[in-house]
């Protein structure tokens, strides 16, 4: 961990910060222990969003999460964007910075969507180089998130697990393990999510994500617009057994609900983190 990370304690169940909840969070509603900031919402200008984030930062420990860095693109990193991100990191000193194992731009054109990579040496090397650039600027390790994917490339010659582990080890970075993405991919690509979990290097799992997805019958889409479903809670319970004490963040991006709904999701995650068993009849303790 970097020196920055030591300044803030990120434990338990955090929440993805959304502007709808500013007032309640500033009033201390829900006793949320930490917040994950989608830094793309703050990477432009120095106006109201930044002022609001300053108020939030006075009250909550923060971690930063990005979408637009395009770590997996064959293009060089976008210097303007990276400068903006680093400016925010310097200003707010989040516990850590995370991004996705994906690409969002090519040929200088930004697609504003997380796009899939082939699982091969070239893509892994590209990621490792880009992560290295970011970590050099950070002066420490960043987190990278396993992305959801709806395409399989002929150019892939390894599994997603092999790919992720290779990038983590070669870049010496940490993993933001998105449980929902893992579940979505395991359904869409027909692999064993538990086997994936068991294959991860424990010491590199630094944070987890929980979110909802859309079920299109033949495939799932990581939409972040609905509650976490029971199979994902079950998978999370397994992840907690394998990676105890790793903080988890509840994300909700589309049709963002009232804070009380998110607090309910956080409570469920917290119960599981404390050893309760997910199930339709409520939580039961493993110890009972």
């Amino acid at each position: 961990m970097t020196g920055v990370e030591e300044k803030q304690v990120i434990r338990g169940v955090g929440l993805g910060l959304r502007s709808r909840h500013y007032d309640e969070l500033l009033a201390g509603t829900g006793q949320v222990p930490w917040l994950e900031v989608l830094l793309d919402n703050y990477a432009h200008g120095d106006g109201l969003p930044i002022r609001q984030l300053e108020l939030i930062a006075e009250r909550y420990p923060l971690v930063f999460h990005g979408v637009g860095m395009s770590l997996g693109s064959a293009d060089p990193l976008d210097a303007r964007y990276l400068d903006a991100v680093m400016g925010l990191v310097d200003r707010f000193e989040p516990a850590w910075l995370s991004e996705h194992l994906a690409w969002t731009s090519s040929g200088g054109r930004h697609h504003h969507e997380l796009l899939p990579l082939p699982f091969n040496d070239e893509a892994a090397d590209t990621l490792v180089a880009r992560i290295g650039e970011v970590q050099d600027r950070l002066g420490g390790r960043m987190l990278v998130e396993n992305s959801s994917g709806y395409a399989a490339f002929k150019a892939s010659d390894m599994s997603e697990l092999e790919f992720v582990v290779r990038v983590l080890e070669a870049a010496d970075c940490l993993l933001l393990l998105d449980i929902n993405n893992l579940y979505v991919n395991s359904r869409n690509h027909d692999f064993d999510a538990l086997e994936f979990l068991r294959g991860l290097p424990r010491e590199r799992v630094a944070q987890m994500h929980l979110a909802g997805h859309d079920d299109h019958e033949h495939y799932l889409v990581d939409a972040h617009g609905s509650p976490v479903v029971e199979p994902v809670w079950n998978l999370y319970a397994e992840a907690v057994r394998l990676f105890p004490d790793v903080p988890v963040c509840v994300e909700w991006d589309r049709d963002v609900p009232t804070l009380d709904i998110l607090l309910d999701e956080m409570k469920t995650a917290g119960d599981i983190m404390m050893g309760a068993q997910p199930g339709s009849g409520g939580m039961t303790s493993h110890a009972s």
């Binding site: 796009l115 709806y150 395409a151 399989a152 490339f153 869409n188």
Partner: peptide
């Protein structure tokens, strides 16, 4: 693109 278990390549691209 390769075939996925329940998605062909055009369907994959359509999602994106």
């Amino acid at each position: 693109l390769d075939l996925m278990p329940r998605l062909d390549a055009p369907a994959s691209l359509a999602i994106y």
